[in-house]
Design a protein around this nucleic acid. Structure first.
Lengths: 214, 214
DNA sequence: TAGATTGTTAATCGATTAACAATC
DNA sequence: TAGATTGTTAATCGATTAACAATC
């Protein structure tokens, strides 16, 4: 349907615009020009205008952008105007940390289930939800409407569970496991590879050290 | 000193090469060609050769790359051959999750301290380290050699603490707080904005839905 | 030696920045 | 109307892919 393909780079920047606009709203700023915003965000006004115009003309010549309007529109583009039921697979520290992120629910990401393999955890409540056994997952998926699955399981288990998720019609996986999931094209996977992020940091640190040896 | 500037895109790919090479080693694969590796990783052989040649000629014509050698060399480039003492600021679920990542220590990222504001947590042991009060941080930094600080504090507190870290000579911050830190140029900041990652997922989900309405 | 595959240069593609006419 | 600032086209820059000579 949509033919105009929007680049990944643009999409990755949208949530950051959204965050800055939210802060401007908190500061009761009513309007902002691409130039002012570019200074705040350490980017170029040109990029901001180009990015936004992928989705429509949200501004007004001679005026700039209405902060509240732009915030709402970017929210819609990001799909934050609808509820996304989600489940967490893996109730370890990371899974529990994500379960307790208050901001998520505020943005429409509603946690409806949390699962683990460890029988010791069964029935323990996290954010008002009792931890269920992973073996109950297929049944749960058939009985409930779930959009997003968060994978905070170890590598092997994650791979296995990804297959089960796909079989049961899950269309989006937020993957924290250290592997690249092999899923059909119509399943959206967003990876968070924490160790890779830390290695990037380490690279920059090492490079800096090398360049500044006395 | 070093003048050849290596692009951020290349650096972001290095940890992924490192991961795949590690898996190949586990499978006892001795050598691999850029072409074979490109198929495994869903990228192009050309990109792999270009990326690696930023750092030197690690391969051999007619043979390919020795897996173990390349793994070790990329490890060195990423600074994984030295120990990086690090501290965690924020002993909530996320901080504790990161503290318990076994893989980090294996790669030289050695946790030497964990701090929080909450007095209730004081003295509780996480991975063999007693949680300390954030007020003790400046003293700790003067007495101990710390390279990396992991920020898993809420926004406001994170901003305040970043200043203290910089004042006390910390050169690298792994930032999980939902804000862009304002730090001097010689301080390396690597951001993990989880909510932005989830919004990207949400965008793709919404777009997919729009394109497939019955 | 012949075959394979790298390292590297050249061509293409895409993303960012600059410029400016349109318009509020 | 004059000034400001967008939306958009054109120019530049950088990154990816293709091609091939070098060489193991």
């Amino acid at each position: 349907m949509e033919t105009k393909q929007i680049s990944k780079a643009v999409i990755k920047r949208l949530p950051r615009y959204y965050r800055y606009l939210g802060e401007l709203m908190e500061d009761n700023v009513e309007r902002i020009s691409s130039n002012e915003l570019s200074k705040k965000m350490h980017t170029t006004a040109s990029q901001i205008r180009q990015d936004l115009n992928n989705f429509g003309g949200f501004g007004q010549q001679g005026y700039g952008y209405n902060v509240h309007y732009l915030y709402t529109e970017i929210g819609k583009i990001l799909g934050l105007d609808t509820v996304h039921p989600m489940i967490i697979l893996g109730a370890g520290n990371l899974g529990q940390a994500l379960a307790n992120y208050v901001d998520f629910e505020k943005r429409g990401f509603k946690l409806v289930g949390i699962f683990d393999v460890n029988p010791v955890l069964e029935g323990i409540a996290v954010r008002g939800l009792e931890i269920q056994m992973l073996s109950e997952l297929p049944f749960f998926l058939r009985e409930n409407n779930v959009e997003i699955a968060i994978l905070t399981l170890p590598k092997n288990k994650a791979k296995e569970m990804a297959d089960i998720l796909v079989e049961n019609g899950i269309k989006a996986i937020w993957n924290f496991a250290h592997l690249d999931l092999e899923t059909p094209d119509d399943v959206i996977v967003e990876n968070v590879h924490l160790s890779e992020s830390l290695m990037t940091l380490s690279y920059n640190l090492s490079k800096y050290r090398q360049e500044h040896v006395e």
